[in-house]
Design a protein around this nucleic acid. Structure first.
Ligand code: MN
Ligand code: MN
Ligand code: MN
Ligand code: MN
Lengths: 227, 227
DNA sequence: GCCAAATGTTAGGCTTAACGAACAATAATG
DNA sequence: CATTATTGTTCGTTAAGCCTAACATTTGGC
């Protein structure tokens, strides 16, 4: 029912691996100790120690002051955690009626507490979903790599017609704002213009045919593909 | 939606309180350090330390070498945990199709990871259930005391016709055996006889009208009420 | 009622995950 | 390219939760 490694790792280790994997899912920015500390809300010294231990366990490759990369074993654990996280988010929205802005923190805790059996049952109950409420792909049980496509809205060519692929779930407040505007995965729109120094992107929503101005943080959080 | 204290307690503390409450739910045996160590699978020294800390926090009353009792504050936390545990078990059976013998350990972990919001949603989704898959009452959100009734089958008067109120979920193997026999909460039966030194209780199942011999451990795990 | 057995407590260690302070290495700036 | 700023590492400490071993108290058998 589920082909991935049972995570006998600590919650902290699971979060480290998941974060390293996720950080390179939509952009190629190298993962540093500082970035990890920032995102995990702990001090760099904590992450430095933690990464050293994961390196000893053969889950990451890391030379002092060097960059951090997952080994094959580490990637397996990471993908398993991403799958758990996204299936749980999908469950919370589809079955328990949560809003898409409410699920991230709940899943962040639950992902460490659920068994592989529960994840298997959830997957079946949900009809083997392939995307979570934010449009992020849900890895298959065997951890098959999936090719995420799309670019940030802020980098999309003006004039093009696109569909939203995913929206970063990092900021619940922003998600609520997007809900108000009618922006969600699969929404279609046309990129009207990028105003450089104002850092504003103007888009036209299809359907209601409304024009919307988005700032840099918003147009960085939205990923689109040409349709 | 949920009236009970948010548990900012550690998983270990939550389990301690839940155990103390549960231990006196169906019998009046005093809760000792030894009993707790046994049931939690840790050493008595560990429990002794833990209880001392809970006493300092005002959640249990305990003088050295004395008996252990919950304070009002401790009872509130305990009942909240019991509610979580039993709602989760019910969810696993009713929604995810688990067997009643498979839910205890899963709920034992999940109960520490779910938010009050999730518990509220679960409760609504399940239609505000009042009993868990083993027949145990689910405390109301406000922690209202519920009066569990019934006696152990081993202590039920011979000749009487009774219904099963609850079956202890402590031993999954035994639960599977009961499933085979057709014994579950609400099953009706007649107590035929107790054979003293053989420690065997013979019952007659209504419906299939089968006679079954149960040993001491089995007839201690089943609680019945007269019908 | 005394003494041994059973039960509970204390003390000292271990591990994990966090921190801050001091230090080391790398990157950026003039 | 030298110096400063940024980033990462190491080390000593703390707090939980667990353990074992030694000790204290209570209980129950005689
Ligand atoms: Mn997490
Ligand atoms: Mn998501
Ligand atoms: Mn538990
Ligand atoms: Mn139960």
């Amino acid at each position: 029912m589920d082909g991935m490694p049972v995570s006998d790792l600590s919650p902290a280790a699971q979060d480290y691996l998941k974060l390293i994997w996720s950080a390179t899912e939509w952009s190629a920015t190298p993962v540093t100790i500082g970035v990890m500390a920032e995102r995990l809300g702990v001090r760099p010294s904590t992450v430095s120690d933690g990464i050293k231990k994961l390196a000893r366990q053969g889950l990451v490759a890391h030379a002092p002051y060097g960059s951090i990369e997952l080994t094959d074993a580490g990637r397996e654990h990471a993908v398993a955690m991403v799958r758990r996280h996204r299936l749980l988010e999908t469950f919370l929205v589809d079955v328990l009626g949560y809003g898409w802005d409410e699920v991230h923190d709940e899943a962040e805790v639950l992902e460490h507490a659920v068994s592989d059996k529960l994840i298997g049952r959830l997957d079946r109950k949900l009809g083997h979903p392939t995307r979570d409420p934010h449009g992020d792909p849900i890895p298959a049980p065997d951890g098959k790599p999936h090719a995420p496509e799309g670019t940030q809205l802020s980098a999309a060519a003006a004039g093009g017609t696109v569909a939203i692929t995913r929206i970063s779930d990092a900021d619940p407040q922003m998600l609520r704002y997007f809900t108000q505007l009618g922006l969600a995965p699969d929404t279609r729109l046309t990129v009207r213009e990028h105003r450089p120094y104002a850092d504003v992107t103007t888009i036209r929503l299809h359907g209601p045919d409304r024009d919307i101005d988005l700032g840099a943080s918003a147009s960085d959080a939205i990923w689109v593909v040409a349709v």
